[in-house]
Amino acid sequence: MTNRYRSVFDIIGPIMIGPSSSHTAGAVAIGHVANRLFHAPIKEVVVRYFESFAQTHRGHGTDYAIISGVLGFDPADRRVPLAVDLARRQGLKITFIEDQGLSPIGHPNTAAVTLINAEKEITVWGCSVGGGTIEIRKVDLNGLIFTPQGPLPILFVEANQPIGAALDQLFGENYRRPRVTHQLADHYIYQLDLLDRPFPEQIDQARGMSQDLTLL
């Protein structure tokens, strides 16, 4: 028993452009996570596919789906099938790699999406578990490695002072311990695996004590 599907709309939905909920809509979602964690102009995208994704990405529209997510499109956006051309016209360098090995995060529908510009590079390892629902099991933010348990929602918070205790208090029983902290010279990055969608007021409060916050 997992609890990765928690909403009726994980089962009836999403509304999307075909052809595959796992290989298309889920792939949009993985690309979108990368986009949201990068939040800066992108110069280059490298997508590495594993297992079923490596075998069927062309037929299932996974290429345009991931790039749609990177561009911030909704899964039902009419531009989804055109995303690779649109992105290349915007000057993005895009590479797709079919990895012959098994998924490093243990799921046949795995993509590792790397976003690069002159200042930074991030990689998101996501898997599409079916029906458009995804998990994020590894994130590399400029060399800092996070390994969330997978199911969303996942919260990333950056602060220039330690706020771990405050986050514990704020989210109480609504996250799977332990939280992950990376301490850098001048700031801290926290990653929390949340159990349920947090209340908007909780996110507002967390944002108030941080420099940067991303709720996936």
Binding site: I11, I12, G13, P14, I15, M16, I17, G18, P19, S20, S21, S22, T24, A25, G61, A76, V80, P81, G130, G131, G132
Partner: peptide
Amino acid sequence: NASMGIICATPTAGSA
């Protein structure tokens, strides 16, 4: 779905 039209996944697009 196969023609890249808009569908609702129930529970997936392939089984929509």
